[in-house]
Design a protein around this nucleic acid. Structure first.
Length: 302
DNA sequence: ATGCATGAGAT
DNA sequence: TCTCATGCATA
């Protein structure tokens, strides 16, 4: 009973104030994005001269050529070898250059923005006093600079208080802020290292700020003597297993990602088969990869 | 500190 | 099915 895991996913009120949508002109090798199908197909067929990309040209053929299991898992040496054959990427690029004789780079504006205002939370009831200050902009001047500064100060002071990231996460629940529950060590860590999305950082800042205030206040009060938090030993149940994608496969995935960050289901399936990975694993990998691109650190909006 | 995963909500 | 916020498990 009460396996402590209880903490539902309160999508929280944090999301309430997310509006600052930053756009990251992730202009990578995406210039190829337009004819990814051609590329993938060409890699395998190499003969089909389907200059134009049909909305259904690829299909299965796809990834055959590239990622041709070049990974002879022979580089297992202790330290990660930063200079691997990486023949895959080379292949990809070569095939690309070959087939894109006349880059039609559609260019289609990059945009797709998510203006996701969608407050995942039941929108603050705001009974009848919704301060609607529309008139002049409500700019959420949430510039990265300040967040960065806050994150750093936060960590500094947290350490000063002798509190771990996990402790902070758990303590948030005791803060009794509406819609705010505990967070994991992971999240606190990511906040401190700015490896969260901009919006996520913005949403979390007030909460962590509140915790910090309270923590330091209490520090004054009961300075030096008091009970420490008893950490309960948890009787874990089923250990969730984390599949590990080997380096060679990972490199292949990265190569694919470079030319097509959002492959269709069919392609994902093809890639999965090629790399001998479960389709879902591949799909999730791409999702996570996309999220990664959006993190503050690498985001162009920085 | 990070990789792979889940789930809710938007599309 | 994707995005986003998060978290368990692990290097």
């Amino acid at each position: 009973m009460m396996t402590m895991n209880g903490k539902a996913h309160f999508s929280s009120a944090l999301d309430g104030m997310r509006r600052v949508c930053l756009n990251s002109p992730q202009v990578r090798a995406n210039i190829f994005a337009g004819f990814d199908e051609s590329v993938l197909a060409a890699a395998d067929l190499a003969s089909s001269c389907h200059a134009a990309f049909k909305p259904d040209a690829s299909r299965h053929a796809a990834a055959a050529a590239m990622a041709t299991h070049a990974h002879t898992h022979a580089h297992g040496v202790g330290g990660l070898g930063p200079h691997p054959p990486s023949s895959l990427e080379a292949e990809l690029l070569e095939h690309l250059s070959s087939s894109l004789v006349d880059v039609h780079a559609p260019l289609h504006a990059h945009h797709h923005h998510h203006h996701h205002l969608h407050a995942q939370l039941p929108a603050p009831p705001t009974p009848l006093a919704p301060p609607p200050p529309p008139a002049t902009a409500v700019h959420v001047e949430s510039d990265p600079r300040e967040l960065e500064a806050f994150a750093e100060r936060f960590k500094q002071r947290r350490v000063k208080l002798g509190v771990t990231q996990a402790d902070v996460g758990a303590a948030l629940a005791s803060l009794n802020m509406p819609g705010v529950g505990a967070l994991s060590q992971s999240t606190i860590c990511r906040f401190e290292s700015l490896t969260l999305s901009h919006n996520n950082m913005i949403a979390l800042r007030p909460v962590l700020q509140a915790w910090l205030d309270e923590a330091e206040a209490e520090r004054r009060r009961a300075n030096g003597a008091n009970g420490s938090a008893p950490l309960g030993g948890l009787g874990s149940e089923r250990k969730r297993k984390r599949t590990s994608i080997a380096a060679p496969e990972k490199r292949s995935l990265e190569a694919y990602f470079a030319i097509q960050p959002r492959p269709s289901s069919e392609k994902i399936a093809a890639i999965a088969e090629k790399l001998e990975l479960k389709k879902n694993v591949v799909r999730v990998w791409f999702c996570n990869q996309r999220q990664k691109q959006k993190r503050m650190k690498y985001s162009a909006a920085h």
